[in-house]
């Protein structure tokens, strides 16, 4: 392919991304150094927004909550995703049907899935799960008004909506495990758990790492589900980083747009750091080509 042709082919896509992704990104970086509101030219304040963010206890709480949520959800996703993929991998004719059902929570918009979860838990709306639990325990759990129950509900919902993705990618990984290796282990009389722990899991390590990285980046950006599930997020300390940005930079008329932009920039830096292994891989591939 000639260079001229190459540029012709990528031009429309590059123009769209330059105009609608790079320019806005530049704007965000510029705003992060300003005191500014929508439609105004801001005043330059240097790194004030960054120091404000890093010393704001509310932001600290948001980071803590987001990191905790990420760790719990991603660990659960990997374990459950692996178990579920193993079970589905053994299925025969019923497989497409089971996969179809398991895909449902992936195709439902997250905010709608969150709404559905809230109806399952909310005692004001006769949530069936809340009803069963409170009958069993003899006391009402305040899923929306107390910190930890709310966290558990949010984590459950996040796992629910992301499990199909983890399961499917791991399932594809399992299919690339050579059958001879598994058979050899079985002939040697390895018990099931050893077969998984010493043979299959080391083989699909790369896939599990991939699922972990993608899920980490997705949970770090958690937003939609909190809108539905945590209307009192700020009071409960269950504000995610993205919800914090939304609240300070949009909700109250964008009073602190600079602050929100600074948080965005910090998050981008973190994401680039996490993507580094992938970036290096692509660069290496390009050098060898």
């Amino acid at each position: 392919m000639r260079r001229r042709e190459f540029f012709g082919f990528v031009a429309p896509s590059v123009l769209v991304m330059a105009g609608l992704l790079v320019l806005p990104l530049y704007q965000t970086i510029a705003w992060s150094l300003q005191r500014v509101n929508y439609g105004e030219t801001g005043t330059f304040v240097g790194l004030d927004n960054y120091t404000h963010a890093l010393t704001d206890p509310r932001f600290g709480q948001a980071v803590l909550f987001t990191v905790e949520l990420t760790l719990v959800v991603v660990a659960t996703l990997i374990v459950l995703g692996y178990l579920l993929a193993t079970l589905v991998n053994g299925l025969g004719r019923s497989r497409p049907f089971v996969l179809g059902i398991l895909l449902v929570s992936y195709v439902i918009p997250q905010v709608v899935g969150g709404a559905m979860f809230s109806w399952l838990f909310n005692s004001n709306f006769g949530g069936v799960l809340n009803f069963l639990l409170s009958t069993l325990l003899g006391q009402d759990i305040l899923w929306f008004a107390s910190t930890w129950p709310n966290r558990i509900m949010v984590a459950l919902n996040t796992v629910w909506s992301m499990l199909p993705f983890a399961m499917l990618v791991i399932l594809a990984g399992l299919q690339s495990v050579p059958e001879e290796v598994v058979e050899a282990a079985q002939i040697d009389g390895a018990p099931t758990w050893r077969l998984h722990w010493n043979v299959i899991i080391p083989t699909v390590r790369g896939t599990l790492g991939f699922v972990a990285i993608i899920s980490i980046m997705d949970v770090l950006r958690a937003f939609d589900q909190l809108i539905a599930l945590s209307p009192q997020a700020v009071q409960l300390g269950n504000e995610s980083v993205m919800l914090y940005v939304f609240n300070v930079a949009f909700q109250d008329g964008g009073q602190q747009l600079g602050l929100g932009s600074a948080v965005n920039v910090l998050l981008i830096a973190l994401i680039c750091l996490m993507l580094y292994p992938f970036i290096r891989g692509i660069a290496r591939e390009a050098r060898h080509a």
Partner: peptide
């Protein structure tokens, strides 16, 4: 490679970093 890396980073971007300027 540069374009693909850019695409990878854009894909992982926090939405607000581009959507708030788009709002403006």
């Amino acid at each position: 490679a540069v374009l693909l890396i850019a695409a990878l980073i854009f894909r992982a971007l926090p939405r607000f970093a581009v959507v708030l300027p788009m709002y403006d």
